[in-house]
Amino acid sequence: MYITRQRPGTQRGATENFTGTVWLDEIAAPPPPSRLRMFHVHFAPGAHTAWHRHPHGQVLHILQGEGRVQRGGGEVEAVRAGDTVWIEPDEWHWHGGGPHTFMSHLAVVEAAGDGTTAEWGEHVAPKNRRA
């Protein structure tokens, strides 16, 4: 058993992967053979990810506020504190804060054998962010 009492510092979301103000805190990245990764992600109003997908899927658990999620070909959906979202392996999607509200979530992924956790695509077109 390991208890982590000190974590890496909060990181600003990279502009190539995020629109708006986004902050990430790494919560867990156990040593191999585990490939689990967990992050606490904070989105300012209107901030969101670019389109992306994960090799083994992703779980989002909304902790605070109200946000938006969308999968490729689907409608934009509102999510609120207490909601949990399962994103299928290799499903293109984006997620972020609501138009006028902050949102934070826990994001849990399993890294691929080579250590990658996500494949990033293009930024979300403004018309796709509404709902």
Score class of each variant (00 low, 15 high):
V59K: 03
R35H: 05
R35Q: 06
F102H: 10
F102D: 14
E16V: 13
W23K: 14
E110Y: 09
D90F: 14
Q70L: 11
D25V: 01
E122L: 03
R130F: 13
L60T: 01
R68T: 08
V69R: 14
A125Q: 12
N128S: 15
I87V: 12
E88Y: 12
F18S: 08
E91M: 09
E119S: 13
A112F: 11
P126E: 02
R12I: 14
T19W: 10
V108G: 08
V124P: 05
G65D: 07
M1Q: 08
T101S: 15
A14L: 14
V69S: 02
H40P: 00
P32Q: 11
L36K: 04
G74H: 04
Q70P: 06
G13Y: 03
R7E: 12
T101L: 12
G65C: 05
R7H: 14
V85A: 10
H105T: 01
H48R: 10
P45D: 05
E122N: 05
G67R: 10
I62L: 06
H105P: 15
R53G: 04
A28F: 02
G121I: 01
H56F: 12
W86G: 10
M1H: 13
V22W: 03
V41T: 09
P31Q: 07
V85W: 02
R37D: 00
R130A: 13
H61M: 06
A29D: 09
L24H: 05
W86K: 10
M38P: 03
T15V: 15
I62V: 02
G46M: 01
I87G: 04
V76L: 00
T84H: 04
Q6I: 11
T19Q: 12
Q11K: 09
E110F: 08
A29K: 13
V108N: 07
Q6T: 10
I62N: 03
G9S: 11
G82N: 05
R5K: 12
H100A: 14
R7V: 05
E26S: 11
G72K: 15
P31E: 11
T10V: 15
A50L: 04
A50Q: 06
